[in-house]
Design a protein around this nucleic acid. Structure first.
Lengths: 123, 123
DNA sequence: ATCTTATGCATAAGAAAATTATGTATAAAA
DNA sequence: TTTTATACATAATTTTCTTATGCATAAGAT
């Protein structure tokens, strides 16, 4: 009768991701070649030990926007009776991803300066 | 007649700051003891070589919210004919700041994992 | 057999947080 | 005396995320 849902997350951590979601998506696609939406959510979940959870309500609109911009292309395939929509970087998308990553590194460097943290980036 | 405005900024870098603005503000206040709004904008500008610009439209509502939450207290003083509103952490605010910093470090660690960056934090 | 969970997509309503554009006011510099 | 710098504030809009919901199939549990 009662459905008990446990929210075990790292909370406010979540809001820090604002603004970097698309960069994360682009980077994952660059690494993997192609991925489908659900796969992306699971990958992030796995990489962060459940600490960062991409919600579908945030992910799918982001993917659609990137596709509309010409950054991504899609291809739907039926696997095990279910349709998966695979995303892949376009040539423009590869350039965009490189730019985004540089921006992110610059941002992390600025965070270092502002917060007095000692962050060392390598690769 | 013509006013030429040069936008030299690092653009998208800007949107990465979303979500971490209040953490930045809290950290700066913790370091300095007290600061007024304009001073915060100039400090961030200086620390990041003009790369991150806190707009007043973002900063002031954030300060007001933190004050309403009991995280900050204010004191207005007239200096050189102009009123400055100094902000300072409350006791609760000091705890909140420590928590926020931990969250930020956890976030940076997660970014490392997701993006495959090698970030080393020290202090 | 049937109910739940996992997989997989999508969108709509609402909230949160930023940008952009104003507005007021004083002091200093051009 | 006009512009720039200092110093506060808010309103309208946009962006972006959360929450809620919907549909559908497969697999596992009861």
């Amino acid at each position: 009768m009662h459905k008990i849902i446990l929210y075990t997350c790292s909370m406010a951590n979540q809001q820090l991701i604002k603004g970097s979601l698309s960069t994360i998506v682009l980077h994952l696609l660059q690494s993997a070649g192609e991925m489908y939406g659900y796969e992306i959510t699971q990958k992030v979940k796995q990489l962060t030990s459940d600490e960062i959870k991409l919600t579908e309500g945030a992910l799918y609109p982001t993917l659609h926007k990137l596709e509309a911009e010409g950054t991504l292309t899609t291809e739907s395939r039926k696997v095990d009776g279910r349709v998966r929509k695979y995303y892949r970087l376009t040539e423009d998308g590869k350039k965009a991803t490189a730019e985004r990553m540089e921006e992110l590194e610059a941002f992390l460097l600025n965070m270092q300066r502002v917060l007095g943290l000692n962050i060392k980036l390598s690769s």
